[in-house]
Write a protein that binds this DNA or RNA. Sequence first.
RNA 1: GCCCUUAUAGUUUAAUGGUUAGAACGUAGCUUUUUCGUAGCUUCGGCGAGAGUUCAAUUCUCUCUAAGGGUACCA
Length: 594
Amino acid sequence: MPDHQPALITRFAPSPTGHLHIGGARTALFCWALAHNAKRNDADGRFLLRIEDTDQARSSEDAAKGILEDLAWLGITWDEGPHWVGRLSEPSASFSSDVGSESRPTQTLGGDPRNVGPFNQSQRMDLYAEHLQRLIDADLAYPAFDTPDELAAMRKAAEAEKRSFIYRRADDYNRDAALERAMTEPHVIRFRMPPEPVTVSDDVLGEVTFPYEELDDLVIRKADGFPTYHFAVVVDDALMGVTHVLRGQEHLNNSPRHVALQRALGFESPRFAHMPLIFNIDGTKMSKRDKDKAAKKAIRDAKLDNSPVEAIDNDTFATWLKDKARQLPREQLGAIATAIDLQLPEIDVEDFRAAGYLPGVICNFIALLGWNPGLKDAEGHDVERFDMDFLAEKFSVDRIGKSNAKFDRDKLLAFNAHTLQHDLTDEAFAAEWLAWAQRFDNELATWANADQTRWTRAAAAARPRAKTLRDAHEAIAFALIADDAFDYDDKAVNKFLLKGEPAGKDVLPDLRAALDAIDDWSPDPIDAAIANRAESRDLGMGKVAQPLRIALTGAAVSPPLGLSLSLLAKQSVLARIDRCAEATARPSNEATKA
RNA sequence: GCCCUUAUAGUUUAAUGGUUAGAACGUAGCUUUUUCGUAGCUUCGGCGAGAGUUCAAUUCUCUCUAAGGGUACCA
């Protein structure tokens, strides 16, 4: 046991079965916030991380690593736990003008200053064995030999009689014989639930009492020798000195079992706080399967019979499509989505990262799911945009709500857009965007690295209209393609090039000459030249700008012209104007008549 | 089925035993802008139902309803 017991210790204990789910991220964030709030108040608050890998079949080391990576990226740092070395992202609200992932210092997270590790449950087997033996010796735990099939039959029988199935040790249970038999036969160890109701006192929900009749003799060690979640969590929390257990409400029913175990083992119960759950906007559970579900629906809607991706053979594809529960590996699902131009719903932290959300924004948004600071700003608006620092400062368990939350993607998007557009400088955005592109958008990253000045301008062009780092690409996509590699939007051509007096196509030659005469090919001179043209012909800017937009991009929408043109070489701009002139010169249907 | 939890606009939520229940996202519209976007203004929209306590209930109590969680050798 630690000789120095910090005042407040929280923990996040994910099981490494995949990427970090957004709901798990919120749990971690709240635990982090509570510990950091204690630190703000001069108490020794700590947040520790533990890997619950007692499910041998489903756990993997890669998944564990991925979860550490996800947490670190979000800025949810842990004081104790597995080691992680890398660069942390900056909280979104405190971007300085010179950030870039390269310039951030390397940090180390985790460690074991109190000597309470190891932090992987699979490496703590001797500890579980020791405490389990105490229970057996005191006849508070016992071997049981029922096979899974027998248990299933008992459950079925109970169901048929319309009573709930509660496992109890038989009245004529022979302890000595059972212990003897356990030496040679496969068995589980069950906890003898004391015959009394258990009251859990919860800092969010108040006191919740569970009758003894609902609490069965739960399995605490599986036949494979591993402890069950219930036992491991109780032993670990006690040995690691965890004082506050914050977890999702799905664990509320587990709490009386844990409390009973804690009593039996002579451990003090930590304070509990069960947080409301997070659901999709339509009320369904936010699940990794949502991604497969969305893909399957899109494929059915498109009436595709064969795999749109070569790497997936049609048999695999067909069985996956038919089976509601079947999931494809992440990469394959992504490939299908790309092939059919589908945006998969974001579920894991990694999904949101790939979609171009900023870590600070994600933390801000999920903090509001089940918690709020309850403050108003000077204008009387609720305070809901804040950074990690504010969260640590203001967080308290008593402001956690009780009712389940739905995950409103529109609001998250609005938060992300606002941060991108208002809280970041162009330079900071350029750095963030590049870091993102290097990981998720090769084409863009290559283009960025080819010309730094151009990249800065691209950032200036994209940032004011970007909602995510991913969709920022769209605003400047015209600059990444060949001069003749885009089509013209008929409606726009008709409206801005063919119609009107003068017609837009008749404005272009003049403009071309003016642009051609520019020496310093940068936004300001370009803008000046365009404005000058408009003025000298006594035309509104729209009369000049829109035709030019179409010539450059094929459509009537683009970032401001000076910036847009500066993303292309002058020769490219001239070539595009020529191509446009050619296209509009051809007699084409009724547009010319009008 | 049984146990547990919850219930304020479409969503996240604030406040409150007593005149018009406040905000954010969203919706619709207007204004500014060379387009888009941004910004600003306006608009729409809420106490799940029923009893009870009370002079008075969205707020306290009960019932119902609905939603969710649990009911594993998953966590």
